[in-house]
Computed example of a mutant assay.
Amino acid sequence: MASSTASRVAIFILRVLVFILLLISLIVLTTNATTADVGTEAVRIHFNDISAYRYMLAAIVIGFAYSLLQLAFSTCHLISGNHLISGNGGILLDFYGEKVISYLLATGAAAGFGVTKDMKDYFEANGLYFGKFYEMAYASASLLFLAFVCSAILSVLYSYALPKKV
C-alpha cells in the first residue's frame, strides 16, 4: 500500500510540475516580441511571425489542456485511491496519452530550439540583433523541454503499472 501511495504522490507531483512548466513556457512564448533598428526603420518581430513558434504554441496549449485534465484525474485518484475511469481504460488512457503528449512536447521544443538557432545565425549574419527575443525563445523552448522530460518520466511510470493492471 505504501508504494502505491508513493507512486500516486509522485505522479501527482510530476503532473503539477508539467502544468507549471507549460504555463510558464506559454507566458514566456506569447510575450516574446522585440524591435530592432534597420537603417531608418524599426523592424518589429513577434513570435506569431514564425511558423515553428506557432507549432510550439500549439504543442504547449494541447499539452496544457491534457495536463489540466490529467491533473484533475490525478487529484481524484490521490484523494480517493481509485481511478475515475474504472477498469483497464484509465491506465490505458494514461499510458497512451502520456506517450502522445510527450512526443508532442518534444517536437515542439525541438522546433523552438531549431528555429531560434537558425534565425539567430541568419539575422546576425545580416547585422540584425534580437538578443532578448532569442533568449526568451530559448527559455520557452527549455521549459517546454523540461515539461517533456517530466511527461516522459510519467510515461515510464505508467509503463511499469500497465502489466499489473491489464
Results as ranks from 00 to 15, higher is better:
A2M: 08
S7F: 10
R8D: 10
V9C: 09
I11R: 06
F12A: 10
I13P: 02
L14Y: 11
R15D: 00
V16W: 00
F19G: 00
L21Y: 09
S25I: 01
V28F: 03
T30C: 15
A33L: 03
T34S: 14
T34G: 07
T40I: 13
A42P: 00
R44V: 03
R44P: 01
F47I: 00
D49C: 01
A52D: 03
M56C: 14
A58V: 09
I60L: 08
V61T: 06
A65N: 05
A65Y: 02
Y66W: 14
Y66I: 01
L68R: 00
L69C: 11
L69H: 04
Q70T: 07
F73I: 13
S74G: 12
S74L: 09
T75F: 15
C76L: 13
L78W: 07
G81D: 09
H83Q: 15
L84N: 14
I85R: 06
S86W: 06
G87V: 08
G87P: 03
G87K: 07
N88E: 15
L92C: 08
L93Q: 11
D94M: 12
Y96W: 08
G97L: 06
E98N: 10
K99R: 11
S102R: 03
Y103P: 00
L104M: 14
T107H: 12
F113M: 12
K117V: 15
M119A: 14
K120W: 05
K120Y: 05
K120C: 07
D121C: 11
F123E: 00
E124Q: 15
G127R: 08
F133H: 04
Y134M: 12
L146V: 12
F148L: 04
C150E: 06
C150G: 15
A152G: 06
A152Q: 07
V156G: 03
Y158N: 05
Y158C: 09
Y158K: 12
Y160Q: 13
Y160R: 12
L162E: 02
L162R: 11
K164P: 12
K165N: 14
V166A: 13
V166P: 00
